[in-house]
Design a binder for these strands. Structure first.
Length: 524
DNA sequence: TCTGTTGGTT
């Protein structure tokens, strides 16, 4: 663009900022300033809004300096934009300072500082601002309601919702979102049904709520009911499939979105979910296609996308490529570290996993349950029993209660090391119901060590929990065969003669367990 | 001109 005059430049910045083109708005502002043009309060407030949205800390602070230089510091729109900028950055000290210096404050100024306190989680200060406000509009009420929602205080949210003089869709959506965050999907649905005017945001919030509680069918139903579907709706549904271990359906929907009759261009959010689906399928090829597709669309890599790719490469065994991406991250967060630790764990690089964990702790990033799944997997893979046990018991020191999956890994670790009795005792000590994976780990270990005593116990539980999985039968059969024994409740099957004709099959047994019939055979 | 409710990664 040629150097614009003040008027057209200002208009363009306002237009760009109002239409979500924040980077372009800020770039134009910089261009105008560099060409020595006199800046208007309109250009400054729009540029500040842009900096707040793209979290351009340095950009916003340099505009703040220029505000003094140009003598704009008494203009309410500019000051409000500054309060909003610092609030969005989480710098509440400066936001408050600018706010307190304002001679004239409008409702937007009050809403901006209110938002800041709510965002930083300071509910007490937010409440005091809310109470002091000379005038409240629907945005003030909505902000306070969503603040209570995020703090899981739906009683207060509900009380405000009842008191508010006027409500719009955002008020209802804030209530729905609050109930979703509290895991109260039924109550969220009640508000969803009761609201006079539902919009896409209401539907997206419900879909994400159903996704979080694993109710994919209800999410799908809502999605299908929508006539015009936008990018956000597709993203919510694709994410729902990816988050609920249904990667194939995530792909199908992604594909549908690209069809000429729908023709919606995916964005970073879409691709992050699709990459997660690739990772679940172990489809490295599709993942690298996504990388080139990103270049084609001009979508730049961000840390979220890079983390999804790290997970994909690591799970597919390309640890070096994963490390490369990991080192290139702007900011290494818990999820990124966890993806790397899991990747190293799966690939038997226990030392690397431990090193990453220590590095993470040094950076004061605290582990969660998934991080420990990665670490325990690492110890398990290389058979470091004592270290694994220590790691498992250290979870409580980090304020984490091991899940059934963590117990499962420990059972596997102890079991493979031949410590079958300890593994069994660990299962008995579980505070929750062990799932088939836990008993399956013990059964597998019994097969490795040919132990009938615990093998029978484990198999019985596996049969009960997953009667349709045939693998457990053959494991047990192999345990019996290895010691030349058959269970008391096992009797020869009439099919034996037929089966004996099959190659590689010596004998075939059919047994009854709790009114269900099972069969197993012994290979040559 | 400045403010709120929605979708992503382990």
């Amino acid at each position: 663009m040629q150097n614009p005059d003040v008027f057209s430049g200002t208009c363009t910045i306002r237009f760009l900022s109002r239409h979500g083109q924040f980077r372009e708005a800020f770039a134009l502002y910089v261009q105008m300033r560099r060409s020595g043009l006199c800046l208007s309060t309109f250009a400054v407030s729009s540029a500040l809004k842009a900096c707040a949205r793209i979290v351009n800390k340095m950009g916003g602070m340099s505009i703040h300096a220029q505000v003094h230089k140009y003598g704009f510091c008494g203009v309410v729109y500019v000051q409000t934009a500054l309060v909003d900028f610092y609030s969005k950055l989480g710098n509440m000290e400066t936001a408050r300072k600018v706010f307190d210096d304002m001679v004239e404050k409008n409702v937007v100024s009050w809403n901006s500082i209110l938002f800041g306190y709510l965002k930083s989680g300071d509910l007490a200060l937010a409440e005091s601002v809310f109470d002091q406000m000379p005038k409240k509009d629907v945005i003030s009420w909505n902000s306070m309601i969503s603040g209570y929602g995020r703090a899981r205080n739906m009683e207060q949210a509900c009380s405000l919702f009842r008191q508010m003089p006027e409500r719009n869709s955002a008020s209802w959506n804030a209530m729905i979102s609050g109930y979703v965050d509290c895991g109260k999907i039924e109550l969220a649905r009640t508000f969803f049904e009761a609201m006079p005017q539902r919009n896409n945001i209401s539907v997206i919030t419900m879909i994400s709520g159903y996704s979080k509680c694993g109710d994919v069918d209800s999410a799908c139903k809502l999605f299908d009911q929508m006539g015009e579907k936008d990018l956000f709706l597709f993203n919510a549904m694709i994410a729902c499939y990816a988050q609920n271990s249904r990667p194939k359906e995530a792909f199908q929907l992604f594909n549908k979105m690209l069809q000429p009759n729908v023709n919606i261009q995916p964005d970073k959010m879409t691709l992050a979910s699709v990459l997660s689906a690739c990772s679940q399928l172990g489809d490295l090829g599709f993942g690298t296609w996504i990388e080139s597709y990103m270049n084609q669309l001009g979508i730049s890599m961000d840390d979220h996308l890079a983390t999804a790719l790290i997970d994909l490469y690591a799970k597919c065994g390309s640890i070096d490529k994963a490390y490369e991406l990991f080192h290139g991250l702007q900011k290494k967060d818990l999820v990124a570290y966890t993806a790397m630790i899991l990747g190293c764990g799966i690939n038997g690089r226990a030392n690397d996993a431990i090193k990453l964990f220590e590095e993470m702790m040094d950076a004061q990033i605290y582990p969660n349950l998934v991080t420990f799944t990665g670490l325990l997997t690492a110890y398990n893979h290389v058979g470091l029993v004592e270290e694994g046990y220590q790691c498992f018991t250290s979870m409580r020191k980090h304020g984490l209660l091991p899940s059934a999956d963590h117990y499962g890994i420990m059972v596997d670790l102890l079991g493979r090391a031949g410590r079958l009795e300890e593994a069994y005792e660990l299962i008995k000590s579980m505070p929750m119901q062990p799932h088939a994976g836990v008993w399956g780990a013990l059964l597998l270990a019994c097969r490795v060590h040919n132990n009938v005593e615990f093998g029978e116990i484990a198999a019985k539980h596996c049969f009960e929990l997953e009667p349709d999985t045939s693998g457990y039968c053959s494991l047990l059969a192999n345990i019996y065969a290895s010691v030349g024994r058959y269970p008391s409740w096992c009797r020869p099957c009439w099919m034996m003669s037929k089966v004996n004709l099959l190659e590689n099959v010596q004998s075939f047994f059919f047994f009854e367990f709790q009114n269900k019939f099972y069969c197993f055979w012994e290979g040559q």
